[in-house]
Design a protein around this nucleic acid. Structure first.
Lengths: 102, 102
DNA sequence: CTAATGTGTTAGTCATGACTTACTGTAAGT
DNA sequence: ACTTACAGTAAGTCATGACTAACACATTAG
């Protein structure tokens, strides 16, 4: 399941911090690393994970490499969560009603 | 951030399998362990993680212990993802328009 | 062509996590 | 009270992951 990769990617706080920066707009690796508590190679590795999870895309721009959020990947786990949310909530309501008739 | 716990919890395939079973309705530990490829103690440990992440609640029922999905926990990360989805999509559209005028 | 900038990769360390087996604790049945 | 069923805990193993430092590669500037 590709959901495993996406959730695992978002489970790391450093990666979520990078991801949130990318939500503002496309950024190069060096820009992202500046002001972060970890080294630039660490950021590069995190971006690789996010890319393999389908959450970001990258494109070369001169000597730099610009990363950008991929709405498709984000939408996928959002869809999973939504589907899940419905069945879980339905089951939850049914359980509450069952308790009320006890 | 409690989001870290929730995402980390859902990142594990075994835990998602347990979680999906709970989406159908409340279950005891033994019921969940039956038909799963891992041992009962493993399931018990996974449930502990899900509980600490705020994704499930547990209540004693005689000698057994029944676990149930907590809609609040699920709703929290859903809200996070939704907020994120909006800003990311907005930034994405802006970027596309920027490219069209180039 | 050479130097400088920006980035990915490799190797190695340290911590964390998923799992099993064995044990402990608790509630119900006889 | 003793036994049986159900579940959490402890200890130990094995794999994975986050990080840094050092290196290799590509692109632009001079």
């Amino acid at each position: 399941m590709t959901n495993t990769l996406a959730f695992a990617a978002l489970a790391d706080p450093t990666r979520r911090a990078i991801f949130e920066r990318l939500a503002v707009g496309p950024r190069a690796v060096g820009e992202l690393a500046d002001g972060m508590p970890v080294s630039r190679p660490a950021v590069s590795q995190h971006l690789k994970v996010l890319k393999e999870a389908g959450l970001v895309t990258d494109r070369p721009e001169g000597a730099r490499r610009v990363y950008q959020i991929d709405p498709a990947g984000l939408g996928q786990i959002r869809a999973w969560l939504d589907r899940f949310w419905n069945t879980a909530l339905e089951s939850f309501k049914a359980e509450v009603e069952r308790e009320e008739n006890a």
